[in-house]
Simulated scan of single mutants.
Amino acid sequence: MINLTTLTSGAFTATVSDMGAELQSLSREDGRQYLWHGDAAWWGGRAPILFPIVGRAVEGRVAVNGQGGEMGQHGFARRSVFERVDQGPNFVLHRLTASEATRAAYPSDFVLSIRHTLDGATLTVSVTAENTGDQDMPYCVGFHPAFCWPLPGGEGQAHRVVLDNGAEPPLSVLEGGYLAEATKPSPFALGVLDLTHDLFANDALIFEGGTGDGLRYGVDGGPELAFRFDNTPNLGIWQKPGAPFLCIEPWHGLAPRAGHGPEIADRPFAMTLAPGASAQFGYSVSVLGD
Rank of each mutant, 00 (worst) to 15 (best):
G214Y: 02
P233K: 03
G282D: 09
G253W: 03
G212V: 11
G242N: 04
G209H: 14
E224C: 10
M271F: 00
L235S: 01
R216E: 14
S284C: 02
N202C: 03
H252W: 12
I248Q: 04
F281K: 03
A277C: 07
R216P: 06
H252A: 15
G209S: 15
N231V: 02
P256S: 08
L205V: 05
G212Q: 12
H260G: 09
F269W: 14
Y283V: 09
K240W: 01
I264W: 07
G236W: 04
I237K: 03
F269N: 14
F229R: 04
D220R: 07
S278R: 15
Y217V: 06
E249R: 13
S278F: 03
L205N: 07
P275G: 05
M271P: 00
Y283M: 00
C247Q: 04
G210A: 06
R267Q: 10
T232S: 14
V219L: 13
D230H: 15
P244D: 10
W251I: 08
D230G: 00
N231K: 11
P275T: 05
W238V: 09
F281T: 05
Y217L: 01
L273C: 05
L254N: 09
R267V: 00
P241D: 01
D213C: 13
Y217P: 01
F281Y: 14
I264D: 00
A204T: 09
V285K: 02
P244N: 10
D266K: 03
Q280S: 15
P262L: 06
A277Y: 02
F269R: 06
A255S: 14
G209P: 13
T211V: 14
Y283A: 12
V285Q: 04
S286G: 05
E249P: 08
D220L: 03
G253S: 09
A274R: 15
A265Y: 11
A270R: 01
L235V: 08
R228P: 00
D203C: 11
A258E: 15
E208D: 13
G222Y: 06
T232I: 07
K240G: 01
N202W: 00
N202G: 04
S284V: 02
L273V: 10
S284N: 08
D213F: 11
M271E: 15
I206R: 11
E224P: 04
L246W: 04
P256K: 09
L254G: 03
V287P: 04
G259Q: 13
T211H: 13
L273K: 06
S284G: 02
N234P: 04
L254T: 07
L273F: 12
W251F: 11
G212F: 08
D213G: 15
F229V: 09
G261K: 11
G259L: 06
P256M: 01
L215A: 08
G259I: 06
L215N: 07
D213Y: 10
D220F: 08
E224H: 04
I206N: 09
G276F: 08
E208A: 14
G253E: 08
A274C: 07
G222F: 02
L273T: 01
A204P: 10
L288M: 13
T232H: 11
D266I: 01
A274L: 14
P244Q: 01
P244F: 06
I248N: 09
G212I: 10
P262R: 06
H260F: 13
V285W: 08
